[in-house]
Amino acid sequence: MDQLTTFFSMGSYGAYVWPAYLLTAAVMLSLLLTTLQRLRRNQAELAQLESLRAVEDQQELQKKAVRS
């Protein structure tokens, strides 16, 4: 327990060391998360559009089959 408190106090510099690391973590995480979120959104939209196109293609094919 004592060891833990000395570790977190960082020789009385804890108030500077920990914010520095937390800030770094926050910036890097938010960079990563916003990037991933955008990728997911784009991927979802692409999948939607592609399935829409597949349905359309199928309808075209059916129409052609009926006509012939």
């Binding site: 890097m28 960079l31 990563l32 990037t35 990728l39 784009n42 692409l46 559009l49 592609e50």
Partner: peptide, 27 residues
Amino acid sequence: LFYLVVLLIRIKSELIEAKLRKYRRAL
């Protein structure tokens, strides 16, 4: 390495966006 990871994902995302723009225009 972190830069490389985020960079690759972002480029991938941009490429998909370009494709999306093309699809939307076609629609």
